[in-house]
Nucleic acid binder design. Structure first.
Lengths: 231, 231
DNA sequence: AGCCTCCATTGACAAATATCACTCGTCATT
DNA sequence: AATGACGAGTGATATTTGTCAATGGAGGCT
């Protein structure tokens, strides 16, 4: 039977979650036989906050926006979903509900793997469980950092931090086309879109970055880092 | 050999972490033989942010303050450490450093258990590992909530939330003596101590609570909840 | 008793940030 | 080519919140 899936197999997948390295051949096979692919267009919702967390999601290509939906359309963007990560909210292990939503920013190709399989692997493979703990801890640390950032930094610091995030965690270059609108950049740094615009301009005037519409170029990374750290 | 420790044994400990229920008799024995007790006076530091996360801490009595130390003495209080919880930062599973500090608010009696033991148990007991994942997830969810709260709520909402937290998670009653100073209440809700005072007064004037120095009494819980949720 | 320190409280003011109202492009659709 | 929707950008203004300075009370220590 021909397999017309986009990703041939978990075994040789080059964007597999690092923790899958801890699985045996048979366990990988189990994964591979129980994964489902789907492709999303920009704007489409991949995972919906509050709905049953029945699957873990993995991106094989593209970028997603991970965000918490608050009341009155006030969203908070936690970060960008990328390949090689497991996308699964902390709620999955508690009440089996998604703790956040994920929507496609570009064309996104995904693999879905049932939480039943994931939980089975956790129970039967201690190294895998450890890897899951590590991943959860890492996410937790990131959220801790966000918390401190929100609590202690003023707008320029938070925006500088976001720019560094995109440069270092998402694009791995100092010049990039940012996928987020000013509005979304505001939802990520907790500021009004007008403030994003103004502070972006300030950063440009002080020679730290160059920003033209969606294009952002970091001119003085050290200064940017200083602004990010000083708050 | 006489054992003069305050807690007789992990086996019949009534404030044990719930996940220890997943351990076998032998594993409990291992815990019990490798735990160390210490008593702290108010103000003393139980766990220091940045220092090696060599132990998990458990309170057998008293209350602690879990806080992140930012730059320039700007702390952020994450919550109150209580008995029956495991106190261990997410950093322990990543780079073996404490992600936050914990200091005693009252006289605190603690058990320390080495991370080596904890990690060994994670590796050899899948149920225990699952329980650890659950705990981490729960903490993660709490921090997510804090994040949304900070980002979307104004001061009265955040303070109302903190009061409800103390009422429901810490004291389990509607009238209590709060252990935190106004300053610390501010560090928990991200507001200046003067603002804490002012909003406490507003809440009192609108008949939601009664507050006299450290004594807080919730008069209208529904209204308080409304303020907390509406932001 | 007198002194000292810490904390709560208050009022006046300043700083940070949001909101509103509007203009201007750009791009897709008719 | 005209229309409309959406996002970027700008200036004026309002709101929220922090900072500063000062006062007073409670408790511990000499």
């Amino acid at each position: 039977m021909a397999d017309d899936r986009l990703v041939n197999s978990c075994e040789n997948c080059i964007v597999a979650w690092k923790n899958f390295k801890n699985l045996s051949k048979n366990e990988i096979k189990l994964l591979n036989e129980n994964r489902y692919e789907a492709t999303f267009k920009p704007g489409e919702i991949i995972m919906k906050q509050g709905s049953p967390a029945s699957n873990a999601v993995f991106l094989s290509s593209g970028m997603g926006k991970i965000y918490i939906e608050g009341s009155d359309d006030k969203n908070f963007i936690l970060g960008i979903a990328l390949p090689s990560q497991i996308i699964i909210g902390p709620g999955a292990h508690i009440h089996a509900r998604n703790s956040y939503s994920v929507s496609a920013l570009t064309i996104v190709r995904t693999c879905f793997i049932s939480m039943e399989i994931i939980n089975q692997l956790i129970r039967q493979n201690a190294e895998f469980a450890s890897g899951m703990i590590e991943d959860l801890s890492l996410r937790s640390l990131e959220v801790h950092n966000k918390l401190v950032s929100l609590a202690h930094k003023r707008m320029p610091g938070r925006l500088a931090e976001a720019i560094l995030y995109f440069s270092e965690q998402v694009y791995n270059t100092d010049i990039f086309d940012i996928v987020l609108s000013r509005q979304e950049l505001g939802e990520m740094t907790n500021m009004a879109k007008e403030s994003v615009v103004r502070i972006l301009k300030e950063l440009e005037l002080s020679g730290v970055i160059k920003s033209d519409n969606s294009k952002i170029k970091i001119i003085d990374k050290e200064k940017l880092r200083l602004i990010s750290e000083r708050g």
